[in-house]
Amino acid sequence: METPFSQVSERLNNRRFIVANNAQGLSGTGTVFHYQVEEDAIFSTYQGGRIRMGNQVGRATGPNTIELLYQCLTTEGELLAGWSRGTVGVDQAGRTTLSFVWGWLSGATGGGESNYVEFIA
């Protein structure tokens, strides 16, 4: 049955993503995000690069929009937390894309924009 959040679930559930652009953030080359979706609820884990371990929890807010809270422990021992609002899309190759506006809540200041693309092994 189609729900208002079916596209988010179809595009994110059990899929992995890598950084396409994140100039102001910590995640970068080597960071992999793995998403799980249940109805409008979203959960992910991520690690690699400067991220020792991290997770996100959030929800779908529309047919192709999501909001997340994230936290991570860096390889330098920093504990950081933040928020993001994103759009789920599709590139010309058919891979799922994620575009975020984000900011820090704890452990750092500032924010930025970032883009991710589905990792297909």
Rank of each mutant, 00 (worst) to 15 (best):
Y70D: 02
G111C: 00
Y70F: 15
E76F: 06
Q47V: 01
E78T: 04
P63W: 06
W102H: 06
E118M: 13
R59H: 08
G77A: 06
L79F: 11
E78C: 01
Q56T: 09
N64W: 03
T109D: 01
N22W: 13
Y35D: 00
V90F: 03
G58K: 15
A81Y: 08
A121R: 14
L105W: 05
A81T: 14
G30D: 09
E118N: 11
G111W: 13
G110Q: 10
Q47L: 04
T96W: 06
R52M: 03
V88N: 06
T97W: 00
A121F: 11
S44Q: 09
G82A: 07
V32Q: 04
N13A: 11
Q56C: 04
T61A: 04
V8P: 02
M53A: 04
T74M: 04
N13R: 14
A60P: 13
T3D: 04
G62C: 05
R11G: 01
I42C: 02
Y35Q: 01
T96D: 01
P4S: 05
M53P: 00
A93N: 14
D40S: 10
P4H: 10
S6K: 12
S9Q: 15
V19P: 04
E38D: 12
C72P: 01
N22G: 03
E38C: 05
G107T: 08
E78K: 14
L73P: 07
E38N: 15
Q71T: 08
A60Q: 11
T31N: 02
F33I: 05
E76C: 02
N64F: 05
L26R: 13
G25W: 14
L105V: 10
A93K: 15
S114W: 06
V117F: 12
S6D: 07
L26V: 14
D40T: 10
W83M: 11
A23E: 15
V101T: 09
A121I: 06
V32E: 07
L98M: 05
S44H: 10
G54S: 07
V117W: 14
Q7S: 09
L68E: 01
G82L: 11
E113S: 05
R85E: 09
